[in-house]
Design a protein around this nucleic acid. Structure first.
Lengths: 135, 135
DNA sequence: TGTTTTACCTATCGTGTCAATAGGTTAAAC
DNA sequence: GTTTAACCTATTGACACGATAGGTAAAACA
């Protein structure tokens, strides 16, 4: 499990904004119901997205959240890194190179590093706009 | 975290066999000490590898484990699939396609499926012999 | 002014998995 | 029959995940 619900929910919400966000702010309640996500759980995710400047937030009636950039300007990688904290595939590489005491002699470490690079490139090469082109 | 210690330990042990297995059976105790892995924990991993026919096992003095194929004939993917159970990166794809109730309308599912294919191809394209070529 | 709507904040909880440990039994060699 | 080593079953502690609970702050509206 490389990506937990936190990151997957965040992606689905961002896609929801692209599809339904032409008219302004969308309240969290609407998104949670439409996407079948726990409202309270989604709150934490939206706060993370808001604090990082990925979305704008507005209080009160008529408020909610909205994107503040074009869909092409959000990479999947940036959203997942923010919500998941990291995209590292194994703990061997989570704390930088040679954090493991066996790093110098480990024959598998270079493979994990290659995998990390590949996954990173994969996610950074996809934008919200790309997700809607796929079927 | 796509690969837990179970799979990572299994890989390191298999590499150990390639490097030190010319003279026959190697007892688990030796591997555990050399690799700094809990002996008891490694037992479960070795039993899995043995039952699946990845290694031969021999009881009693002079016994232990040894590879029964050439290093080129073990893919990293086969070892990880065996010990991890699956290589799926997200739960969306663990139970086959369209296990998720939102599969038909989810704009992110195709991406997860592509990721799974990429990771699968990555691991199946590496053998134990390849791991020793890297530095 | 105060009521509603909505975002924001802090804390807690149940569940499950992971990594490891404990204590045995079976089989082979010497 | 003693030692070595694989094999088997059960249990534990720690931790993260996903979710829930109960509030406060801010903006709109009447």
């Amino acid at each position: 499990m490389i990506v937990s619900t936190k990151g997957r929910y965040a992606l689905r919400v961002m896609v929801y904004f692209v599809l339904h966000g032409n008219e302004g702010y969308i309240p969290l309640k609407e998104i949670a119901e439409a996407e079948g996500i726990s409202q309270k759980y989604l709150e934490a995710i939206m706060t993370t997205l808001s604090k990082a400047g990925f979305v704008d937030a507005a209080h009160g009636k008529g408020g909610g959240y909205r994107l503040n950039r074009k869909p092409e300007e959000y990479t999947v990688g940036s959203i997942l890194k923010l919500t998941e904290g990291s995209l590292n595939t194994v703990s061997c590489t989570t704390q930088g190179p040679s954090a493991c005491s066996r790093a110098t002699c480990c024959h598998t470490l270079p493979m994990w590093e290659k995998l990390d690079s590949m996954v990173e490139a994969f996610f950074e090469g996809i934008t919200l706009a790309d997700l809607l082109k796929d079927q």
